[in-house]
Amino acid sequence: MTKNPSQPAITATGLRKSFGDKVVLDGIDLNVAEGTIFSLLGPNGAGKTTVVRILSTLIRPDAGEVRVAGHDLTREPNDVRAAIGVTGQFSAVDNLLTGEENLIMMADLHHLDKRAGRRRASELLDQFDLVDAGSKYVATYSGGMRRRLDLAMGLVASPRIIFLDEPTTGLDPRSRHTMWQIIRELVASGVTVFLTTQYLEEADELADRIAVLDQGRIVGEGTADELKRRVSGGHIRLQFTDVRGLESAANTLGEVSRDDDALTLQVPSDGSVRSLKALLDRLDDESIEVEELSVHTPDLDDVFFALTGHPSEHEKEPTQ
């Protein structure tokens, strides 16, 4: 499996889906390069899960052309299925079986021979830190263990494309970082990852490209940096030791927002070295002492707000 960014792993054009008279996906185009992490970012109810359910052949789209791993989604669903692994938002594991039995069942369904199936199961238990839990019933697993087993089950047949639907929702920070590490390792081995998330930080951390989904439409797409460049909101933060320094700096710089309690100033800036140097020169000319300086580029939160017109953490009626 070589990394070949020119060949798309997933393409979709004009993808539409309605449930009853509720339009969930309103014409979506996607292009995911092979060997990359693509993140679909959006709030609850934006339609992320519906996209994954369609791309993974679980439900049929109303309209649109989709190719996954070079196969047409509606005409060759079984070829698509043979190339993908899916980890859903709700654990797709059998609670009445042990972790190992779950993995061996997957190996059997992929028609690995008995010995190869057992070997693959124990490899995955090892890789996902589930060796001790392997012989216990899944019903006794913690959330993080369950999610790891879920992911491992999708990997039994070494798929080329993996769908991860909100893989870290509901996990504690430590389990989340473990999951991120696992995802990075997967991509390093040449796998394409299609990830949905409602966490801006997660998309920023992992994704090569991000598409922002809001109310069934893609409202922005690009790398995290490209998206950030599309919004204003970058600034330089200056910290002073006393009010005198703060006063004179505020007088010198003019257009700033000041916080007298924290003794800080926020100076609008595009974050470039040139503008930073200009700022420092002006402070130097006036011999103003600055205790601390930090550069803030806009984060995805700003991006999200700019693209959708509403903040990311609003409460919406969740779709399942």
Partner: peptide
Amino acid sequence: TEGIVARFRTMPI
């Protein structure tokens, strides 16, 4: 109602 059957549906079986 369980996720495991959804998984089966996305597999070439």
